[in-house]
C-alpha cells in the first residue's frame, strides 16, 4: 500500500468513527415515517422541522441564548481583573484561590449541585433564569479564570514594565499594553465560555427544572419521551455553534483551552 492510500484509509476510517453516530441524527431529523427494520425512512420531509419551530424548542433556544449571553458578559467582567492580578501580582493566598477555582473541575458536579440547588431555592432563585445563570457561572468561572490567567502570563512582563518605566500607572499599563496583547486569548476564552453555557446540562436540569428550559434539557426530555425526530433536530441545533467555533478557531486555539471542553 502506498503512503497516499494509507492516508486516505485513515481519513475514511476516522470519518466513519466520527460521523456514523452523528449521521443517524440527520436521518432521524427528516424522518416522517420510519418502520423497523428499514435502513432508511419510508417518508422524509421537513414536517418535524416546521413543527419544532413553533413549540417549546424556540423558547428553549431563546432562553438558552439569553442565559449564555448574560453568563458570558458577567463572567468576563469579573474574571479579567482577577486573572490579570493572579498572573502578575503577589496576591495573598494565591495558591488557595487557585485551588478553589480548581475544585469544580476535580470533583463530580452533580452531588454538589444538588445542594447548590437547595441554597438557590433558599434565596428564591431556584427555577428562575437568575439561578441558572449563577449555576452556569460556577463552571464558566473555573474555565475562564484558568485560561485567562494563562493568557495574561503569556504576555511578557517586560513589555508592561517598559510602559511603567516610561511613567504609565499600573492600570494604564494594563489597559494599553497587556489587554490589547491578551485580546486574542480573551476572545477564544470568551467564545468557549459562551459555548459552555449553551451546552450546560446538569446544573440547568437541577436548578431550572421544571420552569427554565434550555436546549440540552429540552433535548433530553424529548429523547427519553421517544420524540426522536424532535430530539434529533434539537441535537443538531446544539451541535451547530460548536462546529462553527471549531472550524473558525481550530488553527488558533491552544490545546489547553480545548481540553476544558472534554467535560461538557
Amino acid at each position: 500500500m502506498t503512503r497516499r492510500t494509507m492516508r486516505m484509509a485513515g481519513v475514511v476510517l476516522a470519518g466513519m468513527v466520527i460521523f456514523l453516530p452523528l449521521s443517524s441524527l440527520v436521518i432521524w431529523s427528516f424522518a416522517e415515517k420510519w418502520y423497523w427494520p428499514h435502513l432508511f425512512p419510508q417518508q422524509t420531509g421537513l414536517f418535524y422541522w416546521a413543527k419544532v419551530m413553533q413549540g417549546d424548542l424556540l423558547r428553549a433556544l431563546t432562553d438558552g441564548f439569553l442565559i449564555a449571553i448574560v453568563v458570558t458578559v458577567l463572567t468576563l467582567v469579573i474574571t479579567i481583573p482577577l486573572a490579570y492580578v493572579l498572573a502578575r501580582l503577589p496576591v495573598p493566598f494565591k495558591p488557595l484561590i487557585l485551588m478553589i477555582f480548581l475544585l469544580p473541575q476535580a470533583f463530580p458536579q452533580l452531588p454538589v449541585f444538588v445542594n447548590s440547588t437547595t441554597l438557590l431555592y433558599q434565596v428564591n432563585l431556584g427555577g428562575k433564569l437568575g439561578g441558572v445563570v449563577l449555576i452556569h457561572m460556577v463552571g464558566a468561572l473555573v474555565f475562564a479564570v484558568w485560561t485567562m490567567t494563562a493568557v495574561f502570563k503569556s504576555v511578557p512582563e517586560a513589555l508592561e514594565e517598559a510602559a511603567i518605566n516610561l511613567g504609565a500607572s499600573r492600570f494604564k499599563a494594563f489597559y494599553s499594553v497587556s489587554l490589547p496583547l491578551a485580546t486574542p486569548g480573551i476572545i477564544a476564552s470568551t467564545l468557549l465560555v459562551f459555548l459552555y453555557s449553551l451546552d450546560e446540562f446538569t446544573g440547568t436540569l437541577l436548578v431550572g427544572s421544571p420552569f427554565v428550559l434550555t436546549l440540552p434539557v429540552y433535548m433530553y426530555r424529548t429523547s427519553v419521551g421517544y420524540e426522536l425526530q424532535v430530539a434529533s433536530i434539537s441535537a443538531l441545533m446544539l451541535m451547530v455553534p460548536g462546529i462553527v467555533l471549531l472550524v473558525l478557531l481550530e488553527r488558533y486555539m491552544k490545546s489547553e483551552y480545548l481540553s476544558m471542553f472534554g467535560r461538557i
Partner: peptide
C-alpha cells in the same frame, strides 16, 4: 470535543 455529552448520549441512543 465540541459535541456535548447529552448530544452524544442521544446520538448513540438512536444508533
Amino acid at each position: 470535543l465540541f459535541i456535548p455529552f447529552v448530544v452524544v448520549g442521544h446520538a448513540m441512543r438512536v444508533l
